[in-house]
């Protein structure tokens, strides 16, 4: 009884405080809120709404409940492509996590060596591709790897490795990893910069203390530096995850929306594009497109939630 009476009185207490919300705060918040609502929140919500509708040949839409999702996950015409795209996307993400972030960490370690000269030059050069357009990157790599007039086969031949060359972008077995590595090459500067910033933030005294304590370079890294940059590695991982599951442009630039050969480079982004806009013989479907988009949103949401509640809570930021 007493609790309910508290609950009923609470709004009465809160009401005058809320009505005193200063007008200027409302005025200052309004423009951002308005723009954000119109261009971000509304499309998002409307996409989710659309994913519950189905359209017919006339273009009329009617509520279909979870039918679209059922179709996406189990109807052979849709589910094969969806699972293929999801699998490829996971592979794409895996390559970035291991190769891009691994190399990024290694480069950051090298850059933070006290005796390194010309560090800022390396830093700029490695970061440069990040600022180039994906279309240019895709085009340039396609030219370089071209078996006929590309520079890669002759370069390999020059060092006696000519027999290793293959039409990597054209083979079903190698196309996805090749595209993943091109993307890694372009974006390795980002984890490098973030991790480098975290590394130079660790006071030298701490590393000296570990050295005096008898830790060799590897132990200093493993027991002192790595634990201290874990929060940054967490952020890098989640950024990689979100970027990879929203990726589209590189594959579209190199392989087109069909993500060939035989959909071997198809990821959720390209799959969504074909579904929504249609491509060649396939007719676009706004409602199925919205369903794929919502599925992507859910995949990313699950990943981010796992990170936020499973991982980030255990990582402690350290102040020095």
């Amino acid at each position: 009884m007493s609790t309910t009476s508290f609950e009923t009185t609470a709004p009465l207490v809160a009401a005058p405080a809320r009505s005193r919300l200063p007008l200027h705060i409302v005025v200052f918040l309004a423009p951002a809120l308005l723009i954000y609502s119109i261009f971000s929140i509304y499309p998002l919500v409307d996409t989710i709404r659309l994913s519950f509708y189905a359209g017919d040949q006339t273009g009329a839409q009617h509520f279909a409940g979870l039918d679209n999702f059922r179709m996406l996950l189990s109807d052979p015409t849709w589910s094969g492509q969806f699972w293929n795209a999801l699998r490829n996307n996971l592979f794409f993400f895996g390559v970035h996590m291991v190769v891009q972030n691994g190399i990024g960490l290694g480069l950051a370690m090298l850059l933070s060596l006290p005796r390194l000269t010309g560090g800022s030059v390396y830093r700029t050069l490695i970061f440069l591709p990040t600022m180039l357009s994906v279309v240019i990157i895709g085009f340039v790599w396609q030219l370089m790897l071209n078996p006929l007039w590309g520079i890669a086969p002759s370069l390999l031949k020059a060092v006696g490795l000519g027999s290793f060359f293959g039409p990597w972008l054209g083979q079903e077995s190698t196309a996805l990893i090749t595209i993943s590595l091109i993307s890694v090459w372009q974006f390795v500067g980002i984890p490098m910069m973030l991790i480098y910033a975290a590394l130079i933030n660790i006071p030298d005294d701490l590393l000296d203390a570990a050295t005096v304590d008898g830790a060799g370079p590897f132990s200093v890294f493993w027991f002192v530096r790595l634990p201290l940059i874990l929060p940054t590695l967490g952020v890098v991982s989640i950024l990689t995850f979100v970027a990879n599951f929203n990726a589209f442009d590189l594959i579209y630039a190199v392989k087109g929306a069909l993500a060939g050969p035989n959909f071997s480079t198809d990821i959720l982004g390209t799959f969504f594009y074909r579904t929504f806009f249609g491509y060649q013989l396939q007719v676009g479907s706004p409602t199925m497109g919205a369903t794929v988009a919502t599925a992507m949103l859910i995949v990313i949401l699950i990943g981010v939630l796992i990170y936020l509640f499973g991982i980030q809570r255990r990582l402690q930021r350290h102040t020095f």
């Binding site: 006071p203 005294d205 701490l206 000296d208 203390a209 570990a210 005096v212 304590d213 008898g214 830790a215 060799g216 132990s219 027991f223 002192v224 634990p227 201290l228 402690q316 350290h318 102040t319 020095f320």
Partner: peptide, 27 residues
């Protein structure tokens, strides 16, 4: 030798116990 730094240079992610025992692990 053992050194005490002006900033103390304690390992922020380790407990007091582990901070003190860290060097013994390598010895």
């Amino acid at each position: 030798i053992a050194m005490v730094f002006q900033s103390y240079a304690l390992y922020p992610h380790m407990s007091v116990y582990k901070n003190m025992a860290f060097g013994l692990k390598f010895a």
